[in-house]
Structures are given as structure tokens and as C-alpha cells.
Design a protein around this nucleic acid. Structure first.
Lengths: 191, 191
DNA sequence: TACTGACCATTTTGTTCATATAGTCATTTT
DNA sequence: AAAATGACTATATGAACAAAATGGTCAGTA
């Protein structure tokens, strides 16, 4: 084959979604950037949403690789959680696509974007679940429901990073680590 | 005095806000229900928002009384937190005004309603802060920042009650209590 | 056979205009 | 004189309609 048209389309769409978001990206636009007839897009993708989904699938895979890369087998469970979540946050800030998507969710509430962000969140939770289970097996943390525990850890981080600063001065990465360590890992009770 | 016009207006407004929400309540409406000329409202309240604010102030005071009433000096700190948060949830479900308000926030995103809900949340956090400080003083929980700790406890409850059920079967009150106890109070580390 | 872009049915956006509403203030009531 | 009122005004809202844009199709082309 001369050119991989599917790849061209995926790249064009990723570019356009990154620049304009989901709603403001038109299929004509994508076709033009990809140097492809509009109809061609529909030979590879059922519709706009599926095209979007495939791009997000790629994004999730890439983030998984990043997460795996930031894992340090010599660190404690909580250190790994902290480092990886902070890495994911960095990733989000470095990539135009994620920036644009969270913007669009916030100010337009586009349904498809909401769904995609939900998918991303579930991917993270699922990934964490595996590591929580591992930590339990290794005896690093006590017996607990891995799904519920991942959920709690994740929500705690989100709250500390994004919600706390709505009414207070933002917490530094180290303050966050310390707070999670003291409240969630050690617990509030007196030992 | 023959009639307390300010009280009449407050009652009328509370009724209308409860029935129709903030946006859909008109000042003409309030004047009519209160049997008062519209201009009279503006002799007691600077504008619609301030009228709304005064009603919310009353709501917060009432909730505070409910919270105080549910406090049991013989119970543990966490038991009191749990019982009181659950009581506040009940209160929210029993009062048309709070129901309507959260509805309006969700489906219309009215700015004034957002602000008011934020005020309510801050009142709760502030109230909790006092009790956290007390628990520290009594040696019930370990030394920690009362503001940050209240925030964490509150957010954890909100997550477990409202967010968990977006993708899972809702947790029962007792499961929530147990989860908070095990994760936040005791901590995830092995003792 | 793979690809294309003119075409169509729907949605979205822009515009106009009548209605509704928050807030004012001259007048009336007490 | 003080308190209360409701007609009045400037602005905001939204209904109704028209125009433009857009997702998706399919007959035709290379």
C-alpha cells in the first residue's frame, strides 16, 4: 500500500480534537487535514464518536505505559501510588488533547467527552485495583476490597489536588503525600 | 405593630424557593404570596440574592441545631461523625427547599444556587472542624490539621455516598461506616 | 475495489421581537 | 412623617423563524 489511510485519519483527528475539542472538530475538517475524502473516514470508523473512542483508547494505552514506567519495585505501595498519580497529572498537563478535553467537559459538558473521561477514570481505577491487590498479597497493606480501596485512594487524591484549592491555598506535592500517608495509610486513631 | 412584614416576606420567599427554586421564583410572586407590595420587599432586602441568602442563613442554623441534637457525648468521635452526616442527609431529603436547590444546581447550574451550596458546605466543614479539634484535645484521634482532616472526612463520605453508586451498587449506611472506620480511622497499613 | 465529494436530513447557530422580570420611585396610606 | 405600594423602566429571557453548518450516505469515479 502507498499510504495507511486509517493512520492518516487517526492522526488528523487527534490533531483536530487536540486543537478544537470534540464538538468543534468537524468531519470535513478531519478529512481535509488527513488529505482524504470524507467518505473514506466512514470506511474505517462507524461514526465520529467511534473515531474519538479509538483515539482515547490510544491515549489510555500510552498513559498505562507511562504508569508502568513510573513504577519502582523497591518503593513502598504508597510511594508508588503517589509517584504514579503525580506522573499522570503531569501527563495530563503536557498533552493538548487531555487539556482540551477537560476544558470542554467543564465549560460545555459535552456528553461524549463526559463518557470518555469516565472511561479514562475507570481505566485508572482498574489499573490501581491490580496494584492494590498485589500490595495485599505482598502483605504491604491489610486485607480490604481492592476496588473500594482504589476508589478511596483515587478520590482522596482528586479532592486534595483539585477541590482543596477551591477554598484554600493549593497543597504542594509533598504535603499531599504526607497527608495521604498520615490519614489513609496510618489512620487517624492513636496507635 | 399589626403584622411583621419582614417575616411574612421571608416565609413567602421560603415557600416559593421551595416550590419553584431560585430562578423560577419572581419577586412579584413573593410579594403576592406575602400579601405585600413589591416595593416593600426592597425596604427589608437589598435584592433577590440577599433575600435568598437570609433564608439560607436560617436553613444553616436549623441544620446546626439538628447536628447538635444528634451528638452523643458517650459515643466515639467517628460514631458521632457518621451519625451526624447521615442525619444531615436525611434532613436534606426531608426538606423541599434543599431538594429543589440541589436539583437546580444539577440541571441548571444557577450561579446563586452554586454559591449558596458552597456556603452550606463551608458551614458543615467549619462545624466539623470544631469537633475534630475537640477529638484531638480529648486524645481520641491523633494530632492533625483539623481543617484538612474535616475536609478529608467530608469528601470521603460524599464520595462513598454519591460517587460510588455512579458505577456500582449503592453502599448501605453500615458499609459506609465500616469502610470509613477501616480506611480512615485504622488506616490501611498493617499494625 | 477503494475512494471520493456532492448531496440530504438534522442540528446548530444567529436574529428578531414580544414577554417577563428585577429593581426604582413618585404617589398613597397609615 | 414614616411606611407601604404598584405603575413604570431598563434589561434579560426565550419563542419563533431563517440561515448556516454538520454528520453521515451513496452514486459515481479512478
Amino acid at each position: 500500500m502507498a499510504v495507511d489511510r486509517k493512520k492518516l485519519i487517526l492522526e488528523a483527528a487527534a490533531k483536530s480534537f487536540s486543537m478544537f475539542g470534540y464538538k468543534a472538530t468537524t468531519m470535513d475538517q478531519v478529512a481535509k487535514i488527513a488529505n482524504v475524502g470524507k467518505g473514506t473516514i466512514y470506511t474505517f470508523f462507524k461514526n465520529k464518536e467511534q473515531l474519538f473512542d479509538e483515539i482515547i483508547t490510544g491515549l489510555i494505552m500510552e498513559m498505562k505505559l507511562e504508569a508502568d514506567a513510573s513504577f519502582d519495585p523497591n518503593s513502598t505501595f504508597m510511594d508508588n501510588v503517589h509517584r504514579t498519580i503525580m506522573r499522570m497529572l503531569e501527563y495530563r498537563k503536557e498533552h493538548q488533547l487531555t487539556i482540551k478535553l477537560f476544558e470542554e467537559q467543564k465549560e460545555m459538558g459535552t456528553l461524549e467527552v463526559k463518557e470518555v473521561i469516565n472511561r479514562l477514570e475507570n481505566a485508572i481505577l482498574n489499573y490501581m485495583k491490580g496494584h492494590v491487590q498485589e500490595a495485599i498479597n505482598k502483605g504491604e497493606i491489610k486485607q480490604c476490597d481492592p476496588e473500594l480501596t482504589s476508589f478511596i485512594i483515587f478520590k482522596l487524591y482528586i479532592s486534595l489536588i483539585f477541590d482543596w484549592e477551591k477554598n484554600h491555598t493549593p497543597l504542594q506535592a509533598e504535603e499531599i503525600a504526607l497527608t495521604v500517608e498520615r490519614s489513609l495509610l496510618e489512620g487517624l486513631s492513636i496507635r
